[in-house]
Amino acid sequence: MNLGEKIKKYFQEAELYASHGLLAEALEKYQAVEGLVRSSGKIRNRDGILNKLAVKIKETSQKLNKLDRIQPMREVNEDAQSLIKEMYTFDDPEAKGSAVLGGAVALAKFGQYDKAIEELNRLLEYDKLRLEAAKNILWCWVQQNYGEYAVSLYQKWRKQKLFPPDETEVIQAYFNELMDGAGVEHELEELECQQTIEPDSEVEDEDILDISAVKFVLPGGPRKGESIELEISFQSGKYIQMIIPRREKELTDSIHVGALIKNMIFYSPVAIFYGEGFVSSNNAIDAGPKKGDFSLEIKIIKIVS
């Protein structure tokens, strides 16, 4: 086989590999062709061929990089989530016989963390399922790198005395191991006696613009899933406060202290930005002109863009 035939054969192979989605193999062949062309000065239109090959190599590399960047565990649509839950709701020993818990655990394992947490939160109400549900909720938060939030949530449960002493021991041992595995520093002893732990904010007070309003989807309660927009009544750095009129009590029932709110939109007079917030307080106002209304405070813990 002469050089020309070899170049042609390799190029055809590269094109076929590319058409079959075998991008690494295609790239290797394009590079081999480029090497052959470079090694000979006698090829007609050599520079033109090399330019075309450079384009092919660049395009193939870009496609490969794009594939590498895909997150293997990302949120899929609601129908797909229902399907995962349905398909994997078989008798799972880890789920201790509960089909509902099995489905929620399957969602968590497939990386559908928000949906899994939503389902698992519901199961906290059932004595027999509470422990497993709580363990899986903590696992979901830690998997998403929200170790600190998991600690604050665990503290909330301890303060509420959600678990009897024997279960507290079990879950603490589990949580310790989980946090050690994730390399998160933590102190879980006597948490219920400590002041409420709030997840640290990634943003400095001075970096946050004056915010005039926020928009987010209600994370739970009777109006769960509804998108609401609230005006900011007071702001101190990363803490924003909103007044919710008494007639909107349903709304405050949907936002519990300690909840993490993702995908928040912050409106400032000069820009719109996105982030996450931690509900730090939600109280009824008991004096003054706003008496009977509610004061909701959110700590901004992350700015995404």
Partner: peptide
């Protein structure tokens, strides 16, 4: 290769397997 965790999940409860090998020499 990077989807090992997903493969483990899908395999759960398996009764039989078809292993589809690629005949291409490069694979």
């Amino acid at each position: 290769v990077k989807y090992k965790a997903t493969r483990q999940l899908v395999l759960k409860g398996v009764d039989g397997v078809v292993f589809v090998a690629d005949s291409l020499a490069v694979r």
